[in-house]
Design a protein around this nucleic acid. Structure first.
Lengths: 250, 250
DNA sequence: CGCATCCTTGACCCGGGTCAACTTCTGTGG
DNA sequence: CCACAGAAGTTGACCCGGGTCAAGGATGCG
């Protein structure tokens, strides 16, 4: 068994990407260290890695499969706020603040992770500031992504946002399919239900269904159940006039 | 002149809060260090501390006044994403990632800040890991706030969101006013234009105007120009039924 | 005083929420 | 292999919130 290139575990399969892998990849000693500290765990689709409000129990490196990060509003509404792919690290924020999770994490697919328990992780980052900085970077990127999403919500209509969302999902979990005109289409089985897709856009299921229909009527996608194909050249959708607005200050 | 309790500058006036102040407050040596490194700067309303895309030039501690953080979408739409009050630190993210600013910062009022230039700040955090961790904490809190905002956007209607927004603004920059029934009302001059308020909610000016009218018709607020008063007891608005949703997983 | 900026109001229309029925899917047991 | 039940997804009817356009006050400034 080869140690995981993400986190040092013996079963991970993907490339030397991700915050842990990037750190371990530069130094065999680091890799050995990590390898000795990580625990491998498996989850079935729907299982929870951790729930909102629980204390941090460690860092999870996604080895295979996908993890959904879900936030829940007191009034009962919930939304999928992010998806983690192989190589990504989950649970970093709660670990860094040594507090409780603000999101719940659940397996979206059959899942394998490498867990780095809190105590071990604390020792590790204490003696390796570089690693600590990498974890910080993960949160900075998350902040960027979150604000980016808010801006998109204000600046694009839901049809465009859905297209971008699908595009992101498929580029992560899809495989190219030969298309007629040079560029390849992408095809994949979506890891999430319609309801979750809808929650990511902040719309209802029914609306999502109509948005999908519009996109496929326009020939930008082809979708049936969870099987989804993205046609190339959809990059630029029909552009709206986009009001100029008083933003000349910048 | 007393050194600022936020950042060690000699002109700051507010209490020993904020990330820098909390650090300097525990150790006179730290305070002296900071005091020697910070530069005081003033800005007129509308002036930019930094713009989107610029490289980080340092950390700014808000001494007096307020700072608006604005993000701009390529298509021209812009939104005020956050407001910084005295004691808050601005520019942390770009500093931590040693990259360019993802938001622009501008003075909303007549403003005084203490600037800690990048080079000095780097040395400081290198020799004081505690301080570094405080900066990280600032970003973690920002991430929480951002995701919280997204969730709120999904779970509450715009009237409620506006009320909460005003409530937050007034609690930061308002002064209590005696009210008839025990609890105090809060009164203040809003630091932002209608247009910016609207952008924070993701709605148009006209809609904002109507939302304000509805709130004041209901007796929850009183507003005229930028002068705004919040009546007590508005904490619980009329509650909507709030759909249960399939969120029993958590 | 006139002009510009900020804010409000009205009319109209479209996107999306809601409710309800209907149509696949998917998996399970006979 | 089929039958069936339950879940997942789709569609239609209807209505309301909010976007858009356009006009009409306030307020402030030279």
């Amino acid at each position: 068994m080869n140690p995981c290139s993400h986190c040092g575990g013996t079963r991970c399969r993907a490339g030397p990407h991700g915050p842990l892998g990037g750190w371990a990849g530069r130094d065999p000693g680091h890799a050995r260290l990590l390898s000795g500290l990580t625990l491998e765990q498996r989850f079935a689709p729907g299982d929870a890695l951790f729930r909102m409000g629980e204390a941090s129990r460690g860092l999870y490196c996604v080895a295979e499969g996908m993890v959904g990060l879900r936030m829940l509003h007191p009034n009962g509404a919930g939304a999928l706020v992010d998806i983690a792919y192989p190589g990504d690290l989950v649970g970093v924020r709660a670990f860094l603040r040594d507090g409780c999770h603000r999101t719940g994490a659940e397996a979206l697919t059959s899942l394998q992770v490498c867990k780095l328990p809190t105590a071990a992780a604390r020792q590790l980052v204490a003696s390796h500031p570089q690693l600590y900085r990498r974890l910080v970077r993960v949160c900075l990127d998350a902040l960027d992504a979150s604000q980016e999403a808010m801006l998109q919500a204000a600046a694009m209509d839901n049809r465009e946002r859905l297209f971008h969302l699908l595009s992101r999902l498929l580029h992560h979990c899809g495989s190219p399919v030969a298309a007629f005109d040079g560029a390849d289409a992408i095809d994949a089985r979506l890891p999430v239900s319609r309801e979750d897709l809808a929650s990511m856009l902040g719309v209802r299921q029914e609306t999502l269904s109509r948005l999908l229909k519009r996109l496929s009527d326009q020939g930008l996608i082809e979708i049936s159940g969870r099987q989804c194909r993205l046609w190339p050249g959809g990059g630029r959708l029909a552009t709206r006039p986009t009001t100029p607005l008083a933003a000349a200050r910048f």
